[in-house]
Amino acid sequence: MTTPLIEVAAASRRYDDGPPALEGAALTVWRGEAVAILGPSGSGKSTLLNLIAGLDRPDAGTVTVDGVRVDKLGEAASARYRRAKIGMVFQFFNLLDDLSVADNVVLPAQLAGMARPAARARAAELLDVLGIARHARAYPGRLSGGERQRVAVARALVNRPSLLLADEPTGALDTASGEDVAGLLRELNADGQTIVVVTHDLALARSCTDRTVSLVDGRVTADAVR
Rank of each mutant, 00 (worst) to 15 (best):
L143P: 06
S144L: 04
S144W: 09
S144P: 12
S144F: 13
G145E: 07
G145S: 13
G145N: 09
G146T: 12
G146M: 11
G146K: 01
E147R: 10
E147T: 06
E147K: 02
Q149K: 08
Q149T: 06
Q149S: 04
R150K: 07
R150I: 06
R150T: 02
R150S: 08
A152I: 09
A152S: 02
A152F: 01
A152Q: 03
V153N: 01
V153K: 03
A154N: 01
A154S: 02
A154C: 08
R155W: 03
R155A: 00
R155K: 06
A156K: 11
L157E: 04
L157T: 00
L157S: 08
V158K: 05
N159L: 03
N159Y: 00
R160K: 14
R160L: 06
P161R: 14
S162F: 10
L163N: 02
L163P: 04
L164K: 07
L164G: 06
L165Y: 05
L165T: 07
L165F: 09
L165I: 09
A166W: 07
A166R: 08
A166Y: 00
E168P: 10
E168K: 13
T170K: 03
G171F: 15
G171A: 14
A172V: 11
A172Q: 07
L173R: 04
L173M: 10
D174C: 13
D174H: 04
D174R: 02
D174T: 12
T175K: 10
T175A: 13
T175H: 13
A176V: 15
A176Q: 14
S177T: 12
S177N: 15
S177P: 15
S177L: 09
G178I: 11
G178T: 10
G178K: 05
E179P: 01
E179F: 14
E179S: 11
E179L: 15
D180W: 14
V181G: 08
V181M: 05
V181S: 00
A182L: 08
G183F: 12
G183H: 09
L184F: 02
L185Y: 11
L185Q: 08
L185K: 09
R186I: 07
R186S: 13
E187K: 10
L188V: 11
L188W: 08
N189R: 04
N189Q: 07
A190S: 04
D191A: 15
D191H: 15
G192P: 14
Q193G: 02
Q193K: 11
Q193Y: 08
T194F: 07
I195F: 03
V196C: 10
V196G: 00
